[in-house]
């Protein structure tokens, strides 16, 4: 268990190491989800456009 403790405390540097990895997760997740959200939005809008044109016909 001491092994896991030293993993969590990072040899006394937990206050620097964990926020660095936290920043990586937050920033990379943010850019990823922003990318996915925009793609889904435009795909939905395109699909809706096709439907309404079929309605016209």
């Amino acid at each position: 268990m001491t092994n896991f403790d030293s993993f969590l405390t990072m040899g006394g540097y937990a206050a620097y190491v964990w926020p660095a990895y936290g920043a990586a997760v937050v920033i990379l997740a943010a850019i990823w989800f922003d990318t996915e959200r925009r793609r889904r939005a435009v795909e939905r809008a395109l699909a809706a456009g096709y439907e309404s044109r079929e309605d016209d016909a």
Partner: peptide, 8 residues
């Protein structure tokens, strides 16, 4: 352990 910050 701060060297682990390097990997990011």
């Amino acid at each position: 352990e701060t060297v682990r910050i390097m990997y990011i």
